[in-house]
């Protein structure tokens, strides 16, 4: 009944704390610190970390980069979208717009690529399936990171940030081939 009455001791902050609470607070604090240090640990030893690399950009500027890549490395077309096979290690430009991911990428398993990602209009969500890697894609910002596919197959990019009535039709594709 004291939870809604003033504390029974005027100087309540001098009342000693029970053993049980001290033990629990100790255990909980240790666990909190472990969780905290897991994040820097993963930055050093883990293989899944986002880079801090990002640039401000404009749709026009980014479109130029995408078009140049498509022109240089196009190997086919599917559903009206060019399939592009950039060389391993190169800069790869991928854009999201209402309501498609452009272009389709053909990458080699085990090779690393420098992906540049932005939105031309509203916010979009890059959700690589069934791998399940998810990134926020913002207009005006170009996110840059290295990505290494590890298994051949067809992968989809689902848009997982609501972007209007055609949101559910916004699918992209990444084809991963054997080395």
């Amino acid at each position: 009944m004291t939870s809604f009455l003033p504390p029974s001791d005027r100087i309540w902050w001098n009342v000693p704390v029970g053993k049980q609470e001290i033990v629990w607070i100790g255990i909980a604090l240790v666990w909190c610190l472990i969780m905290f240090f897991m994040m820097p640990y993963w930055h050093i030893y883990g293989k899944q970390n986002l880079s801090n690399e990002a640039y401000q950009t404009t749709p026009a500027k980014f479109q130029v980069e995408v078009d140049a890549m498509v022109e240089k490395y196009q190997v086919g077309e599917e559903a009206g979208i060019p399939i592009v096979r950039p060389p391993a290690g190169s800069d790869v430009y991928l854009l999201g717009r209402l309501w498609q991911w452009y272009p389709i990428l053909e990458l080699e398993s085990g090779q690393s690529y420098r992906i540049h990602l932005t939105s031309m209009d509203w916010q979009h969500g890059f959700s690589l399936q069934p791998v399940n890697i998810n990134l926020q894609v913002l207009p005006g910002y170009e996110m840059v990171f290295n990505m290494t596919p590890d298994k051949a197959g067809d992968y989809a990019i689902v848009c997982n940030e609501y972007c209007g009535i055609g949101h559910h039709t916004m699918l992209g594709k990444i084809i991963v081939t054997e080395k």
């Binding site: 883990g46 293989k47 899944q48 970390n49 880079s51 990171f145 990505m147 290494t148 590890d150």
Partner: peptide, 9 residues
């Protein structure tokens, strides 16, 4: 689970 997905850096 995270350790099993594509490498990103």
């Amino acid at each position: 689970y995270l350790a099993s997905v594509w490498h990103i850096s």
